[in-house]
């Protein structure tokens, strides 16, 4: 099952590369730099997905006390941090040639960075509690509090004046993206989702192994 997911993800990423570089045209205003979008946007969407899973799994753990939920929260949280980091780095590399700056303290960038820091803290907390069960409980509480921040992050771009353009995909009105670019973005998004599922199942297996050894 995991192996199949892995191959599917690899295939999807290859297709995404082909779509991003071969099929999709360069952007009228930005030129080829715009192709960074095919990494940047799927990364943050994957991260949001991961953090949503953390919230669900945290609530699930607190109510049922099944280790499976904690395993899911831990694994999704770690992968979410990786993808948020990727979003920040790729966004920064995209920002330099287009906006003319690596980083600016506008609402969207700042709140994404804060999201990253909150979940880094979440992972650190897990590492610092010796008692497994207690660590799971505490992490679940932090996971819930962290998730409350996510809507603030996402809606910030809609109500704050910012240098970051409004979201293309998750905006209330359909944004004007030409069909070929939209399709390439979709393929890359699906590929990243597959990759996320593959990494998640790998991370879950690793966590299960850790528990067996500790037992």
């Amino acid at each position: 099952m995991t192996r199949w997911l892995g191959w599917l993800a690899a295939l999807g990423l290859l297709a995404g590369l082909a779509m991003g570089f071969g099929y999709a045209p360069k952007d009228a205003v930005q030129g080829n730099v715009q192709r960074i979008m095919y990494v940047h946007v799927p990364s943050i969407l994957t991260a949001y997905l991961a953090f949503a899973l953390v919230l669900i799994a945290s609530l699930g753990y607190l109510f049922t006390r099944r280790t499976g939920w904690d395993r899911l929260a831990h694994s999704a949280g770690e992968i979410g941090v990786v993808f948020t980091g990727l979003t920040l780095v790729s966004g920064s590399i995209w920002g330099k040639p287009t906006w003319g700056t690596w980083w600016t303290w506008d609402a969207r960038l700042t709140s994404t960075a804060i999201l990253f820091l909150i979940y880094v803290g979440y992972l650190l907390l897990r590492g610092m509690v010796d008692d497994q069960e207690r660590g799971a409980r505490y992490a679940a509480v932090v996971g819930i509090l962290g998730a409350v921040n996510i809507p603030i992050v996402h809606f910030s771009v809609l109500w704050w004046r910012t240098l970051h353009q409004p979201p293309t995909i998750l905006s209330p009105e359909r944004a004007p993206v030409s069909a070929s670019i939209g399709l390439a973005l979709l393929v890359n998004g699906v590929a990243f989702a597959l990759l996320f599922l593959y990494l998640l199942s790998k991370r879950l297996a690793l966590r299960r192994l850790e528990e067996e050894i500790r037992a």
Binding site: A28, T98, G100, Q165, S178
Partner: peptide
């Protein structure tokens, strides 16, 4: 002291109605 360009959320191919 610093100039930043702002771009819209539109992504379009260069050909067509530009």
């Amino acid at each position: 002291s610093l100039i930043m360009a702002k771009h819209s959320e539109e992504y379009k191919a260069p050909h067509g109605d530009e």
